[in-house]
Design a binder for these strands. Structure first.
Lengths: 146, 146
DNA sequence: ATCCTACCTTGGACATTGTCTAAGTCAAGA
DNA sequence: TCTTGACTTAGACAATGTCCAAGGTAGGAT
């Protein structure tokens, strides 16, 4: 992700302040922000950036494969800048925290030919769900929630 | 799913016409309707049924484990009445068709202890994506899509 | 059979997330 | 520095889901 801007330039992208800011927000730690969270953080650096621009830029980053779109059970999609190393996700059922995880083996290999129904399968995503350490000890709201 | 109504009664549910209709829509084939599709089909049998009632009933069925909520890349969640046999899903990237599939082995076992970060993991869902037979031969719109 | 009442349904307002458009702006090449 | 096509903006619109107050009804009690 670090030289994302260079890679975008190489693709002939116009390097605008808005795109730079969105890329900076996603850069660094392994975050999984929603579009709105990206927008909030982008606004902190560039107050006049429009919501539509954030959506546009995120979609473009997804299209060119620099960012992965993650659909969890929540309504909003999340955007994962860790697109260069294959991984899966571990989601807390209570607080929604997401961690990147690396299961062993190829999940695609687990699907027998007879279960493919003529599809040409290109991808398998695995989502692990459970309670994160914080949520499994803190019963203040509801320990029975999953 | 066939004696769902009986099981609901056993749980002390009030058996209303609306709930019966929603259950009937989900009964039978292995469908994966959105809430709106359920509502449309329910309306055909009980014209005055409200959208909120469909949402309420679906949520309740999910809560008690009679129906599974499936989040794909699409915006709308889908509802899968095949909750009594563990399975995963195969989704067409183009047309959105969903099939139930049965990979071998337990996906949970593929996640090493060192990759669990103290979570108590309860579930692993696998989503396979690709083109269904119809969509991989029919290039009328766009064969390059995925 | 009738009544009661807690639970269910209704319609519509509202919330959230995402998409589209027309008009204005600007990055980068000439 | 000029030009131009790509980018951004604000706000309307669309899709999906949630909430609430008012009225209706299933099913137990009498």
């Amino acid at each position: 992700m670090s030289d994302l801007l260079q890679r975008l330039r190489d693709r002939g992208w116009r390097l605008t302040a808005q795109r730079r800011v969105v890329a900076e927000v996603l850069d660094g730690e392994h975050v999984h922000y929603t579009a709105d969270e990206v927008h909030a953080r982008a606004t902190a650096r560039l107050p006049e950036i429009a919501r539509a621009t954030v959506y546009n830029t995120l979609s473009e980053l997804v299209t060119i494969g620099e960012v992965i779109e993650v659909s969890t059970a929540d309504r909003a999609k999340r955007y994962d800048p860790n697109a260069r190393h294959r991984h899966q996700h571990l989601v807390c059922s209570r607080c929604g925290t997401i961690r990147d995880v690396h299961p062993v083996g190829d999940p695609l290999a687990a699907l027998p030919e007879g279960e493919r129904f003529g599809f040409s399968i290109s991808d398998a995503t695995v989502t692990y769900r459970g309670l994160c350490p914080d949520c499994s000890t803190d019963c203040s709201t509801d320990c029975s929630t999953d």
